[in-house]
């Protein structure tokens, strides 16, 4: 198989996994958070038991898959991108933002959500702090996703936007 065909499969995988990841991120921020604020205590318990863990499962593994497909797609230019060299600075900024977002998912959101959901024992006060931390990390990722998507798209479709 030619290199360009392999790259296409990596790009396809990157887009598929990325849609699952960012789609769920927007679902959490625009739908689930307001829903959980409005729903009864009983509904919240049910959601924490059957809905949120499922969504978080797809969310965190899709985040990892997106990053791995992206890294594979960068291939030999991985270093150029992360060092923001020349025109690789455009995709490199997208890659940096995506990497920070991945670290947020696995390093902040998931460990804190495990306590909120009761998968890891925590007191009621700890759960409150963890919920706030996970919320802010999730909101931060929503902020970062906006420039991240511009730089991802611009790397192949909008190079003329940048002064070259």
């Amino acid at each position: 198989m030619e290199g360009s065909t392999i790259a296409l499969f990596f790009r396809w995988g990157h887009l598929l996994a990325g849609i699952v990841w960012i789609g769920l991120l927007y679902y959490f921020n625009f739908v689930q958070v307001p829903f959980l604020k409005a729903v009864s205590a009983e509904g919240k318990t049910e959601a924490f038991k059957h809905l949120v863990p499922r969504a978080l499962n797809w969310f965190r593994w899709a985040a990892l898959a997106t990053w791995l497909f992206g890294a594979a797609l960068l291939g030999a230019h991985f270093g150029d991108a992360f060092m923001l060299k020349g025109q690789y600075a455009i995709i490199g900024m997208g890659a940096w933002l995506g990497t920070i977002m991945l670290l947020n998912v696995w390093g902040i959101i998931w460990p804190n959500q495990k306590r909120v959901l009761g998968l890891v024992p925590a007191s009621a006060d700890e759960k409150k702090i963890c919920a706030r931390r996970a919320f802010l990390a999730s909101r931060t990722n929503t902020v970062l996703s906006i420039p991240m998507l511009l730089f991802m798209a611009a790397s192949t479709h909008g190079i003329a936007l940048f002064n070259q």
């Binding site: 921020n29 625009f30 307001p34 923001l84 020349g86 025109q87 600075a89 455009i90 900024m93 933002l97 802010l136 909101r139 931060t140 929503t142 902020v143 970062l144 996703s145 906006i146 420039p147 511009l150 730089f151 936007l161 940048f162 002064n163 070259q164």
Partner: peptide, 30 residues
């Protein structure tokens, strides 16, 4: 002062402001 991340629109606007800042940074770099 309220945290803009507490509101959906505050979050979205922050994203666009950050986009403008990072665009200027990368534009100066390439």
């Amino acid at each position: 002062m309220t945290n803009p991340l507490d509101s959906i629109w505050g979050t979205i606007i922050s994203g666009f402001v950050l986009t403008a800042v990072l665009y200027a940074f990368i534009d100066a770099l390439v």
